[in-house]
């Protein structure tokens, strides 16, 4: 059975339909890259999966948890999928450690010492254990993004959604974030990432999804999709003519 099941999902903003019937099943441990032009609906799809956007039609489930528009179901779903954002979205009034501990203590009611131990372990994992007491504005963009990853991991999700997580970073900081993601992938974490890092997608991902005008236009293993694109749209997107 698939871990994430996306069935006939449709989403409109007013009269504009941005997702026109998406079907996608993701198996446990898969690393999926979602590529496509801006406006193709790739970010919207990702944000629908954990309910940041409501869908108009179709269904989404993650490990049996259905996406329904009430707080109880949403919470159950969000405990299974973590999300990492382009703009990091760390809590500026909390230290790095506080950022990683907050949702554990508030949402899961984990006792503080235990939450702190988990936070330190997760920060260790992203190479930032020494920044436990620093504030987000004292860190570089790459470090902030790694804290955001640690914060999501501390909730022990079974899948992570990454929404263009390196797009706001200076070029020399991209690799440190991707190295963390690469490690997660190697450890068997299920990942769905919207990305513009084609080389990374080629090296790390098990499948590439090309979206075009609100539809899944082409899907396949990276070697197929990048070497032998089937449609003119994908050829154009990849810069092959």
């Amino acid at each position: 059975m698939s871990l994430i099941e996306i069935t006939e999902v449709r989403k409109s903003y007013g009269a504009t339909e941005v997702l026109k019937g998406i079907n996608l099943d993701v198996a446990s441990g898969e690393v999926i890259a979602i590529i496509g032009k801006s406006g193709s609906g790739k970010s919207t799809l990702l944000r629908c999966i954990n309910g940041l956007e409501t869908i108009n039609r179709g269904s989404i489930s993650v490990a049996g948890a259905q996406l329904l528009d009430d707080e109880v179901h949403l919470k159950a779903l969000r405990l299974k999928v973590g999300m990492i954002f382009q703009q990091f979205n760390l809590f500026p009034h909390q230290t790095v450690g506080g950022n990683v501990m907050l949702s554990q203590t508030v949402v899961k009611k984990t006792p503080k010492p235990e939450a702190e131990a988990i936070a330190r372990k997760m920060l260790e994992r992203v190479g930032l254990a020494h920044k436990f007491d620093a504030y987000p504005d004292e860190l570089s963009g790459g470090q902030q993004q790694r804290v955001a990853i640690a914060r999501a991991l501390a909730m022990q999700p079974i899948a992570l959604l990454c929404d263009e997580i390196t797009s706001a970073l200076d070029p020399e900081l991209v690799s440190e974030v991707l190295a963390v993601v690469r490690e997660l992938a190697a450890e068997g974490m299920t990942l769905l990432m919207v990305t513009h890092e084609m080389k990374f997608a080629r090296d790390v991902c098990s499948r590439v999804v090309f979206m075009h005008q609100g539809r899944v236009h082409e899907v396949g293993p990276p070697e197929e999709v990048f070497a032998r694109p089937q449609t003119p749209e994908l050829k154009q997107f990849l810069g092959l003519h």
């Binding site: 309910g51 940041l52 969000r78 703009q87 979205n89 809590f91 949702s103 949402v107 899961k108």
Partner: peptide, 26 residues
């Protein structure tokens, strides 16, 4: 910032928890 709502929501916080721990302090 809107991202603060989104980040706290995606960590599983309910509306009151978001207000209490993330939004109001800022």
């Amino acid at each position: 910032a809107k991202g603060q709502w989104e980040a706290s929501a995606s960590l599983g916080m309910g509306w009151l928890q978001q207000m209490r721990y993330v939004i109001l302090p800022q």
